[in-house]
Amino acid sequence: MTETLLGQAAQWLDDGRQVALATVIETWGSAPQPVGSQLIVDQDGNFEGSVSGGCVEGDVVSAAMDVMDSGEPRVLAYGVADETAWQVGLACGGKIRIYVEPLGA
């Protein structure tokens, strides 16, 4: 059976790692990953899965580590990459919203 990301998250939890889950909940325009796409992150910043074409993963991973610390879910939103968003943005011109939550407990 094809392994799922959630199955892998459960495995990570069993291994005693802290895990956060990021899920694409809304997309507008040409977003590279459909709604429901997911990324899991552990306390050391190791991650699996994808929520964009790689444009915002770095930022999502650091937000996920904050979420693990605080225990509180967060909603992230990313838009088009312009000068101000040069650090983090979607080059494809789409917009996405991502829900980041701690797993386990």
Binding site: A10, E101, L103, G104, A105
Partner: peptide
């Protein structure tokens, strides 16, 4: 997502049952 919910989703997958999770975003 707590462990119980994760296990319920995984077990639904293993037995080919369709389920949805509903999250209040706020």
């Amino acid at each position: 997502m707590n462990r119980d919910l994760i296990d319920q989703v995984l077990s639904a997958r293993d037995t080919r049952r369709a389920v949805a999770t509903v999250t209040s975003i706020a």
